[in-house]
């Protein structure tokens, strides 16, 4: 007892929604599309006799796919910055990423402000210095410990402060993402 063009109407709507949602994370897209499909299913089940007009009404009430997508994007931004101002963990995480990389990386992962992707990028940049060169040493600790390493017959100390530069890039990246977050927050709460 479906409307004669039920599949066409519903799949057409879902396809337009999916197209509008491009750019959002895949799991968000999947969740929203599933929620919308469930909603359509519930609406249809509530009908006694289904006509194409009923189906058009159902999708019209849901709203334009573009509007849903805009809402999803806005909610996504609010979520990222919602109540999560940076504090001492973030500051210490950035500072220690420069000075003593592993300690900084641990703090960065403990923070709830950065997303997993940002943490991964920040950590990987710092990890380059850690893996290639010897060391948990940044530019400040590096020269001191580097000399010690050299006296023990380790790798050349010149390498170490140079590689510490990567930590600085990692820290700048993390700080930049934090400042972007603050901007997003102030824009959304206006």
């Amino acid at each position: 007892m479906s409307g004669p063009h039920a599949t066409q109407i519903i799949e057409g709507y879902v396809a337009r929604l999916e197209a509008e949602l491009a750019g959002l994370p895949a799991d968000r897209r999947r969740e929203l599309v599933q929620d919308v499909r469930d909603h359509i299913g519930e609406s249809r089940a509530a009908l006694e006799q289904e006509s194409d007009a009923d189906l058009h009404n159902i999708v019209d009430r849901l709203g334009e796919p573009a509007e849903l997508a805009r809402e999803a994007r806005e909610r996504e931004e609010v979520k990222r910055s919602n109540g999560q101002h940076w504090g001492w963990i973030e500051v210490a995480g950035i500072v220690l990423t420069i000075l003593v990389w592993p300690a900084g990386a641990i703090l960065v992962w403990l923070s709830r402000v950065w997303s997993r992707q940002e943490k991964l990028i920040g950590t990987l940049i710092g990890a380059v210095a850690f893996v290639i060169g010897f060391p948990l040493f940044g530019p400040l600790v590096g020269p001191t410990l580097g000399r010690l390493v050299q006296t023990l017959g380790g790798p050349t100390p010149l390498l170490i402060p140079t590689l510490g530069f990567f930590n600085v890039i990692g820290a700048i990246y993390l700080a930049f993402r934090l400042s972007r977050r603050e901007t997003a927050l102030s824009r959304v709460t206006v």
Binding site: L32, D35, R61, G63, E64, E67, L68, R75, E76
Partner: peptide
Amino acid sequence: LTTEGTIYPLLARLRRD
């Protein structure tokens, strides 16, 4: 509620929060 569909992004966000 002006457009029914907009509740779903909202619910998803409430859940993530």
